[in-house]
Amino acid sequence: MPAPCAGSDGIRDTWGPYGNADMLERALFIGLRNNFRRDEDVEYALHICTQGGADVMELEGYGLREGAFADIVLVEAETVVEAVAARPTRKLVLKRGRAIARGGKALFDVE
């Protein structure tokens, strides 16, 4: 059986008007839906939304390690749980090392 994972492929489309590609938000939804209350449960929700998806898709070059793709979201939070639960502004979002959002605003037009 594959590892639990989550995605956000429907970005405000016909099938689901709620998608926005924000995996921190998706982790929040998973935590709320599954009544996750303990810190380790909320951390697991984020794992499902990050590493879990990469594991299921068998992505190479993924993860928090030297040589991995520079896909990262920077937020001001003291813990992973705070990053998920508090909904902090995404200070910087990098996709393969390229800044795509700063201060909660996209750096390009989405059409």
Rank of each mutant, 00 (worst) to 15 (best):
R90D: 04
V42I: 15
A85Y: 13
C49I: 02
S8I: 03
C49D: 01
P2F: 13
R38P: 08
Q51G: 03
L74P: 03
G31K: 05
R33C: 12
F108Y: 14
A6C: 13
A70I: 13
E111H: 07
T89Q: 05
L74T: 08
G97K: 08
E58L: 07
A86R: 06
P17K: 02
M23S: 09
F29M: 10
G103N: 13
L92M: 12
W15C: 13
M1D: 11
R65P: 02
T79P: 09
I30Y: 06
H47C: 09
N35K: 09
R38Y: 11
R96N: 14
V81L: 02
A83I: 10
A68L: 04
R102Q: 15
G67D: 04
V75P: 08
V80F: 02
V84A: 05
N34S: 11
N35F: 13
E40K: 09
A45D: 04
R87C: 14
G53V: 08
A85R: 15
G61H: 10
L94V: 10
I48Q: 00
D13T: 11
I72M: 15
L59Y: 07
R102P: 01
P88H: 09
E43C: 07
E43D: 01
R38F: 08
R33N: 13
W15L: 14
G53K: 10
C5W: 15
G61R: 01
R33E: 11
P17I: 05
G7I: 00
L28P: 04
H47M: 10
G7W: 09
G53I: 11
Y18C: 09
R87H: 12
M23P: 11
L59I: 05
A99Q: 12
R33L: 13
D109H: 10
L107R: 02
R98G: 06
G16H: 12
G97C: 13
G67F: 09
L59R: 03
V73N: 06
R12Y: 00
E82H: 07
D13H: 01
S8D: 15
A21W: 12
A83K: 04
N35S: 11
N20V: 07
G7A: 10
L94N: 03
V110A: 06
M1K: 08
A45T: 04
V56N: 03
G52F: 12
I30D: 00
G104I: 06
H47S: 06
A27Y: 07
E43S: 00
L24G: 12
V110M: 06
G52W: 05
A45C: 12
G52R: 04
K95Y: 08
E40M: 00
E111Y: 05
I30R: 00
H47Q: 06
L107H: 03
E78C: 03
T50M: 03
E82M: 00
